[in-house]
């Protein structure tokens, strides 16, 4: 190509505001379309389908598309299902509170008390090591720990703290909570430790110089600045716990039924309409929780 050709070539369309190409005028639309198409196909359409199916008529062995509210009425008039909804919400709140109570101090230690960046990274990686084994093994490993003749009972008995093995450790709501907290606490530690490590030391020095006590510095400076991390961690934990079914069935001996467990069993017995009702209820619950958590802080400002 000669230099004169280079000079006479028209400027690229993107640089010229008068360019008339359809693609140039709708560039942002064109760029957004693959993502939009993906979300419509694989999120909005299935969601719509689920809501639609939840109004279908379910007979014992068949389902047809005559619209009815029977499944919805059945869900909300059954003590079993409303009980499962309330149990799911109670378990979620308990696990969320425990992951915060255990996770925040851990994150505080990693993010603010460990001065070296490489040791911080090593500790965070150590938190993730349990994830190198499969989910099922991690959950099932709790059985020999919590059983009647499990490790916890043996240790407590040999220490003379208890004389009878604690029966309620395994196959109860307690064991489900223990299992879930162990698995999900790391999702709280990570984002919080990240936010804490970002706080500039000079802010702490400035607060100390202004005469604030250690508790005031924590409650007025450190905690508010780590709040976005807490919210992100809480969203992770909430979304995962609300949809849980595997931990619950493995550690409760199918005695603790969460909404997720009911969906699994209903789909197993081909009760599509009823499973769809529970699916919609669960989706609404998760949506409300995430929306409420996002109101707590302006995440867009932090990212």
């Amino acid at each position: 190509m000669t230099s004169s050709e280079t000079l006479t070539r028209p400027a690229p369309a993107a640089a010229d505001p008068r360019a008339e190409g359809w693609f140039a005028r709708n560039r942002s639309l064109v760029l957004a379309s693959p993502g939009v198409a993906w979300m419509v196909l694989f999120l909005l359409v299935p969601l719509g389908m689920m809501i639609y199916v939840s109004f279908w008529t379910q007979t014992t062995f068949a389902i047809n598309s005559t619209l009815t509210t029977k499944s919805w009425v059945a869900f909300f008039s059954s003590d079993t299902y409303v009980g499962a909804l309330l149990r799911t919400l109670r378990l979620w709140l308990t696990v969320l509170a425990l992951t915060f109570v255990i996770g925040y101090p851990t994150a505080l230690f990693i993010g603010r008390f460990v001065r070296s960046k490489s040791i911080q990274t090593i500790l965070l990686v150590a938190c993730v090591i349990p994830f190198w084994t499969s989910f099922l093994i991690r959950v099932l490993a709790w059985r020999p720990m919590l059983g009647r003749e499990g490790a916890v009972n043996i240790v407590l008995e040999n220490l003379g703290i208890i004389s009878q093995p604690i029966e309620t450790l395994l196959f109860t709501e307690t064991s489900v909570i223990i299992g879930m907290v162990q698995i999900y606490v790391v999702f709280m530690v990570g984002p919080v430790a990240f936010m804490l490590a970002r706080i500039d030391d000079s802010l702490i020095e400035a607060a100390r110089d202004l005469g604030a006590s250690a508790w005031t510095i924590f409650s007025r400076i450190i905690f508010p600045l780590s709040l976005p991390g807490v919210v992100v961690g809480a969203i992770f934990v909430s979304v995962m716990v609300l949809g849980e079914f595997a931990t619950a069935s493995a550690l409760s001996g199918r005695k603790v039924n969460l909404l997720g467990n009911i969906i699994v069993s209903q789909v197993g017995s081909l009760k599509w309409a009823f499973a769809a009702v529970i699916g919609v209820v669960l989706t609404v619950c998760i949506g409300v929780v995430v929306a409420a958590l996002l109101r707590l802080v302006n995440l867009r400002k932090e990212l």
Partner: peptide, 22 residues
């Protein structure tokens, strides 16, 4: 680097020492 508390207004930043000193 000024070390202003990023989550507080100008007023709260300045009032910090008065309100919260030990």
């Amino acid at each position: 680097n000024y070390a202003l508390f990023p989550h507080m207004t100008v007023f709260d930043n300045v009032a910090f020492g008065l309100r919260f000193r030990e």
